[in-house]
Design a protein around this nucleic acid. Sequence first.
DNA 1: CTCCGTGCCTGTGAGC
DNA 2: TGCTCACAGGCACGGA
Length: 274
Amino acid sequence: MPELPEVECIVRDLRSCVQGKKIVGVEFFFENMLPGITPEEFAGQVCGRIIRSVKRRGKYILFYLSGDKVLEIHLRMTGRFIFHPVPVKPEKYTGVIFYLSGNISLHFQDIRKFATFRLWEKQELYRATPFRLGPDPLEDNFTLESFLAIMAKKPGSKIKAFLLDQRNFMGMGNIYTDEALYRAGIDPARETGELDLKEKKRLYKAVYSILQEGIALRGTSVSDYRDLRGLPGGFQNRLKVYRRAGEPCPRCGTTLQRTVIAGRGTYFCPQCQV
DNA sequence: CTCCGTGCCTGTGAGC
DNA sequence: TGCTCACAGGCACGGA
């Protein structure tokens, strides 16, 4: 479900809702998100700890807990958190309820059950996936120079695959990648090495601006995405090409097409994207 | 290296 | 109405 803008919105909301609260209980309804650890062990590791801060790296959510523990959560396709200021019963897809101090609770829901929870010692966190991948586009080190340097290392990659590969940059997913390539006017099937400097600059700006707009509109809800209050985002109304095959290009009127690149459905305008 | 298929799950929508 | 199929916001893994 969520890409960088959605995760960023979730993390900002989590900070205002649960930062400083103590985890007083954890209840599981399914446990697919816990590889290699039982729900009892997990509860034993987190109960009694205070949520000191909530951070994001790419699409990963990091709960920094008291006692130097870090809970790393990846929502994958359909994972979501819903904040409840008063106790409510679990819903059909509720997998976990975190009971917090102040009688509030955080419900984790996941239709497809792909999401993952992992616990780290803070000093071991550098070994965790979020810190072994590429830079995050919202961090200061996402400059045009770094973008060009990383792209130069992968001249044979298709540009769509390059943007989706989290080892290059973290946070881009299928929706924002197609929209950024449309905005930059670049054919998703081209190789990064074929792009001239002007095109690379356009792409850099398109990636940055599309992510910022996604955040400003509180994410994209094409189907499942909801924020911490259960509300949909607004960027789905700004999508130009994603899931619009067969419709006219909003810029030139040419019929938008769908193809498969990097194993993902890819939407583009064959006229505007060259 | 890159690409590709597969698996993990459940739901939706189109076509028959 | 009901069945089957393609597709769905992600990522890890193994093989070519």
